[in-house]
């Protein structure tokens, strides 16, 4: 057990230079953004003197390196600065919007796994058959759809033509009150509060964006499941199991799938961080109040603090995610930690 603890601590240590790199790059990137935040803060009517005053107040007149040190100091205090566009502390904005993005991504990934893993297993047990080809074409079509296009298409069909889905305007129709915030996930909070009407409302809102995102993530998961299952099924130990007369179910799920899960878990991690990025477009199409749309808005108006805060939040999330994957790996594979 201590061996694994050691490994996890090692991973955390490895993440530190990565986080520092992210801080540096995001700092430089935001400074390169066009536009002058001092001018923006001062408002359109300001004269040169007041802009200079504000620039000084913001510390923007200092050399870049000094600005960076100030930034680090603020970071250490947990202060991500004020957002230009919302006027709120970035930390508060992120805390409000992050659960929306996470909820969407998690629902989409769950949906995707529910479809992709059985599909991959099905294809792997019948390689070369028409089912295999069909699976391949379907998931390839899924990953070939630009998420913004899928979203628009779904909205057109299910909202405009069929009227089945609610208007694509955020997490909850204004008819309902958002549930009291516990986890920030509406589906969980509404269930906790016993407000099933709000739950249904939130569920209806999330279906289309989640499907949009899930379609995009089907392919990597299904492909990896198929490939991993194929290689597991052709392994020697499966032959041993068959020669010992073990049943088909035990061989397929107890032996092959558990071994095949290892690479699938790795892929899941990659897909997760990937779909956090793809979220940006989906959130824009569905007016979803997540951090993706927040970042887009911030980028467009050169909102330093907001962009940096967003990037940092994503990087921390990424590091945490990798930790979770490593732990999941260690739980599945007893060999971890030795080599």
């Amino acid at each position: 057990m201590s061996r694994r603890l050691h490994m996890i601590l090692g991973r955390v240590a490895q993440a530190i230079p990565v986080l520092f790199g992210v801080v540096v790059i995001s700092f430089l990137l935001t400074r390169a953004l066009p536009g002058d935040p001092a001018a923006y803060f001062a408002g359109p009517a300001a004269d040169a003197a007041s802009i200079a005053e504000i620039r000084e107040a913001l510390g923007l007149d200092k050399p870049l390196f000094q600005q960076f040190l100030f930034y680090l100091r603020d970071l250490a205090r947990g202060d991500l600065g004020l957002s230009l566009s919302t006027g709120q502390p970035v930390m508060q904005d992120l805390a409000m919007r992050l659960p929306a993005s996470l909820e969407l991504t998690l629902v989409a990934l769950g949906l995707s796994c529910l479809i992709a893993i059985p599909l991959g297993v099905l294809a792997a047990t019948r390689p070369g058959s028409w089912i295999d080809h069909l699976c391949r074409v379907l998931v390839t079509a899924g990953v070939s759809m630009p998420t913004f296009f899928t979203g628009i298409l779904l909205i057109y069909v299910f909202y405009y033509l069929l009227g089945l889905a609610p208007a694509p305007l955020g997490r909850l129709d204004f008819l309902y009150l958002p549930p009291p915030s516990v986890s920030g996930f509406y589906l969980i909070d509404a269930a906790l509060a016993g407000d099933w009407q709000a739950w249904l409302g939130a569920a209806k809102q999330i279906v289309l964006p989640a499907i949009t995102l899930a379609l995009f993530t089907l392919a990597p998961i299904a492909r990896m499941t198929r490939a991993a299952m194929l290689s597991a099924l052709s392994a020697d130990f499966i032959r041993t199991a068959r020669a010992a007369g073990l049943g088909q179910g035990k061989i397929l799920y107890g032996y092959a799938l558990r071994n095949a899960l290892l690479p699938v878990v790795t892929t899941l991690g990659m897909v997760f961080s990937f779909s956090l990025g793809a979220n940006v477009l989906v959130e824009k199409v569905f007016a979803w109040p997540g951090i993706g749309s927040y970042a887009v808005e911030a980028l467009v108006v050169s909102d330093y603090a907001a962009v940096q805060g967003f990037v940092l939040a994503m990087a921390v999330l990424f590091v945490l995610l990798n930790l979770v994957i490593d732990i999941a790996y260690a739980l599945i594979d007893p060999r971890i930690g030795l080599s």
Binding site: V18, L19, G21, V22, I25, S26, L29, T30, L33, S273, F274, L276, G277, A278, N279, V280, L281, G292, A295, V296, L299, V307, F310, V311, M314, A315, F318, V319
Partner: peptide, 12 residues
């Protein structure tokens, strides 16, 4: 990779 890749492209 720690950046959401699409957002990094946006930023660039």
């Amino acid at each position: 990779m720690a950046f959401p890749l699409f957002v990094l492209a946006m930023g660039v």
